[in-house]
Amino acid sequence: MTIAAEEEMPGAKRGSSLIRSPQFSSLIILIVLLTVFAVADANFLSPLNISNMMAFLPELGIIALGMTLLLTAGEFDLSVGAVFGLAPVVVMLLVQNGEASIGVALLAGLILCVAIGAINGLIVTKIGISSFLVTLSMLLVVRGAALYITQGFPLKSWDQPGFFVTLLAGSFNIGSFRFYTSLWWFVGLSLLAIYILRYAKLGNWISAIGSNRNAAVARGVPADAVKIWLFILTSVLAGLAGMISAFRISAASPVAGTGYELEVIAMVVVGGTALTGGRGTILGTIVGALMLRAIRNGIVLIGVPGLAYNIFVGVIILAMLILHALLQKNAARG
């Protein structure tokens, strides 16, 4: 009965495990990428470009936080991109038809997200269909609904200044940088997610469910309820991100967020969260979100033709995943 690292000092062990941890290797790659882009094109670190990246970052990043928790619990959600599109469309329709004030309409939009998440969660846990199939179907339903109720046309978004616009898409300048309030949402929600996953009782349950659901259930952990709430959370965060985006660009399009589900899942796994559940890292996800944002932005700046850029994004994601897999194998061998 010995374990491999037995002779090592506890401190040394902890130190090396940090360096070997997936979020750390992602961070190194992120720094390398940023350096390459910065050297290749001076504009990459210009205030305008950084402000631009920071405007987009929270919108996908917020969804990625929910997705990280969900993946850690062993499920995922492909309907987030569609919810991102539908939620603001519903809000704007309610307002434009004079059926609700902007505040009430936003609330109604969020309640719709709760319902979508709850349906996903209930079908996955109570009927036992894989989340891939359930949320793929939900993607079609939700996207279809957004297209149908708008007849396919984008809506002009609420653009009169006011409390909710400031709350979701207000902007402020620090020096020559322009930041949106959405960045604060992302920072705040990130801190909350880190707390939940690492320090709260709930986080222990989430990891345990994803690691070995039956073991968690045998210890009295309400696995189904936790999963359902995580589906709801993910859906609500997707809707919130959609509203933030719609306010920022003053338009709500029924096709907004197309393909975001894969982009978000890529951010999460590139950060080091296991697609198979049990191992999740919010810090990794933040690094992953920054990385994908930087890649998309930097690749265009350094002159890769627009149509070719998905090739690069795909290759970099693949390289990251291979790196994580190798590290994981190494760690397992000890």
Binding site: S207, A208, A216, G220, V221, R279
Partner: peptide
């Protein structure tokens, strides 16, 4: 089934009966 492999020994030992501070926070308790 008995243990969650991705959790530490300590976390497994107390899974479902975690000692927490600020108990009133429920599942969000640290």
């Amino acid at each position: 089934t008995s243990l969650a492999p991705d959790l530490s020994i300590a976390r497994n030992l107390f899974l479902g009966r975690e000692p927490v501070n600020l108990k009133w926070l429920g599942v969000f308790a640290p």
